[in-house]
């Protein structure tokens, strides 16, 4: 049944996020072309203003995609589970676990796809900028290699494998917690009598505050270490804290999952 739920959820939800990401990619190409002619050197102020407008449009498109995809899937989850549509959703012959997974998996997948889409868009924009500007007479790949080496040196990354693993752990945990915070907050909000949407928003900020507090508390010892230890490797000092952060995200996600499942199974009350 989970397969069928996933199939229908995917079919119903792929269009809007795809359009949003597609539009972002088009805008990034459009914004990249602004480097083709050095209009900032022009004496026509209107052209420079236009340039700023295009970059602002690109900036807001990135924000729009990152927020838009999450918001669209959150609204879809809310409508599908807790409004009139819920009368069908909750009378399907499936378990509450299957229902939750069928919503969480596409949500997490779209979080990843949207992030990849944004990274691709930034890469397009950056590559076009490098390609058109050709800094210091270097080729595109030489420039990228140079910038990557600079970044690695600035962060004091001595062990690339550890860096990769820690970023992957934080990324996976971030996707899990982002998804579960949305699902959990909307579901917890259903316990609040007649003000369920307000309850969901309140729950979201409440959960977020708790999570930030716990993460900050875990980070403090490492911050002290960084302040008092003389080291060139900022990353080396902070790396253990990334794994702790990932663990906090995962624990929170698991707690939110079981709370949500319990509410759906025991406290469901569609208006």
């Amino acid at each position: 049944m989970l397969k069928k739920l996933l199939k229908h959820e995917w079919e119903a939800s792929w269009k809007i996020p795809t359009i949003l990401i597609g539009v972002l990619l088009v805008i990034s190409v459009f914004a990249g072309f602004t480097f083709a002619a050095p209009v900032w050197e022009s004496e026509m102020h209107g052209l420079a203003f236009l340039l700023v407008l295009v970059w602002m449009l690109y900036y807001f498109a990135i924000i729009g995609v990152s927020i838009g995809v999450v918001l669209y899937l959150a609204i879809r989850f809310y409508k599908n589970m807790y409004t009139d549509e819920g009368y069908l959703t909750h009378t399907l012959p499936v378990t509450s676990h299957q229902l939750l997974w069928s919503k969480m998996i596409p949500m997490a997948a779209w979080n990843v796809i949207a992030t990849v889409g944004i990274l691709v868009s930034v890469a397009i924009f950056g590559l076009m900028a490098i390609g058109f500007l050709q800094p210091e007479g270097m080729g595109i790949w030489e420039t990228i290699t140079y910038m990557a080496e600079e970044m690695v040196a600035d962060l004091g990354i001595e062990n690339m494998a550890a860096f990769g693993i820690s970023m992957l752990a934080v990324g996976i945990a971030g996707v899990c917690s982002g998804t579960m915070m949305t699902v959990g907050a909307i579901t917890i909000g259903q316990l609040v009598g007649k003000h369920k949407i307000l309850g969901s928003i309140g729950a979201y900020f409440g959960i977020n505050t708790v999570m930030q507090f716990v993460v900050s508390a875990c980070m403090i010892p490492f911050m002290f270490n960084m302040a008092y230890e003389e080291t060139d490797s900022v990353f080396g000092v902070l790396m253990p804290s990334y794994f702790i952060m990932a663990a906090v995200y995962i624990v929170l996600s698991v707690v939110l999952y079981f709370v949500s499942e319990w509410i759906i199974r025991k406290k469901l009350n569609l208006d």
């Binding site: 119903a12 599908n80 009139d84 009368y87 009378t91 399907l92 012959p93």
Partner: peptide, 22 residues
């Protein structure tokens, strides 16, 4: 009430539950 009963019960609520985009 659970998946077993839902497989055998056909329910018409007093409101429209159809997804309007379908």
């Amino acid at each position: 009430p659970g998946p077993e009963t839902k497989a055998r019960v056909s329910y018409l609520p007093e409101r429209t539950y159809l997804q309007t985009g379908m």
